[in-house]
Design a protein around this nucleic acid. Structure first.
Lengths: 223, 223
DNA sequence: GATTATGTGGAGTAGGTATCTCCTCTTATG
DNA sequence: CATAAGAGGAGATACCTACTCCACATAATC
């Protein structure tokens, strides 16, 4: 079943054209997974890359291999983001900055949401990269709570659910108002403050009635 | 509530066993659509009802007919809920009460979410029932804003997106902590106050790390 | 520039799923 | 008892997706 060409233990380098095609596949996968999520097929990606299906399957024996190649790097990027947020002088600012940046990544990349919130995609390496993120996020939450700015009953797992909610808005409104998620992240963050002041200005206007209608027409839950 | 929605105008009444089976189908559809959403097939419903597929298809020529029979009544129920919320003495209490009750309906019934937020299920009658809801919801929002309790930049469409977010949490955590959505609705409502006080107590504890892991394993985005 | 290892394209296969029909058998009703 | 109405469920049809196979093309090597 699984033939040769596992990215591991390649003694011999790829032929020049093959290496070029490999890059094309990865670039195409970023776009296609990003737009349509992990439900996209390797056939779709091959077509988008202007290559034959067989080419993709020889380079990446299964979707899993491709997912791994793409998302381990992404998770490392997020961990770095959290570390950077920890160096922010104000703990609340650091927390909020991290929330906005990661939400943006989720909104831009539907595939990230699938991989982040499910265990059905990616195996060992992805799982490991995910675990690396956890302690850093924990510290980010604890620090913002210790400073009395983040409400005390928040837990790190709330970040995951926050991304779930924001991701669902981003997906829903993607075609009609791609930034709509900012509106609701703003509201949610207001709801996370330990000592709320006046509501903060929302970063995006609402959907008007017709636009909501269009979004409803475009939305086909599941598949 | 669902009696008069037979596809063909009733010239002759159904045979006794046929009428009984019709009820069984509707009861089964409520359960199955409620648990698995509108992606469930009429075959699934037939099996759950202990009937043959043909029986279901004779009574409801298509999924649409069945959906209509179920959800027009549900929407009318929601409209009544909104009207009742309008009679609440305190406008904010009325708004919040409506949000909790409707969120509960969404959390209990995955099918409702599909029909409410998409136009791909149900046709004229469902669309009409949906439109009936709009002006009442508008008044509910306006009233809470006029009293200075709901932030002024909220729009009625925000209710739809709120239900999208809450529904996605309810679905995600359904098997591990069915009430989790209450936690996030609480946070969101805190974020909707024009003059927030101290954060309100959350109606549900967070997901702990292992439970989140289980939820991640159970979640298969799309299909 | 001939030879060969390597890579490519995409039709095709296998296997799954969903909707809905058809026809035989069963049952309520007058 | 007669018979019209209903029940059941295999299976026709029409998808979809993952993955393979091999005749043909191309890079690398000599």
């Amino acid at each position: 079943m699984t033939r040769d060409t596992c990215p591991v233990a390649t003694a011999r380098p790829l032929r020049r054209d093959a290496e070029l095609n490999r890059q094309k596949i990865i670039a195409a996968a970023k776009v296609v997974f990003g737009e349509r999520g992990l439900e996209a097929t390797l056939d779709d990606i091959a077509h988008y890359a202007g290559l034959g299906v067989g080419t993709v399957y020889r380079r990446f024996p299964s979707k899993e291999h491709l997912v791994e190649a793409l998302f381990v790097a992404k998770f490392e990027e997020i961990t770095e983001l959290a570390e950077k947020a920890l160096t922010e002088p104000d703990p609340w600012d650091g927390f909020v900055m991290f929330a906005w940046k990661t939400a943006e990544l989720h909104a831009e990349d539907r595939g990230l949401r699938d991989v982040m919130l499910s265990t059905t995609f990616g195996q060992d390496k992805v799982a490991h990269a995910k675990e690396e993120m956890i302690p850093v996020c924990n510290r980010l939450v604890e620090r913002a709570q210790a400073s009395g700015q983040l409400r005390a009953d928040v837990r790190p797992s709330d970040l995951a659910l926050l991304h779930l909610m924001i991701g669902s808005v981003a997906e829903y409104a993607h075609d009609v108002q791609p930034g709509l998620w900012r509106r609701y992240l703003g509201m949610l963050l207001d709801g996370l403050r330990a000592q709320p002041g006046a509501p903060s200005a929302l970063a995006c206007g609402p959907l008007d009635e017709e636009t909501l209608d269009v979004a409803m027409c475009n939305w086909h839950p599941h598949h």
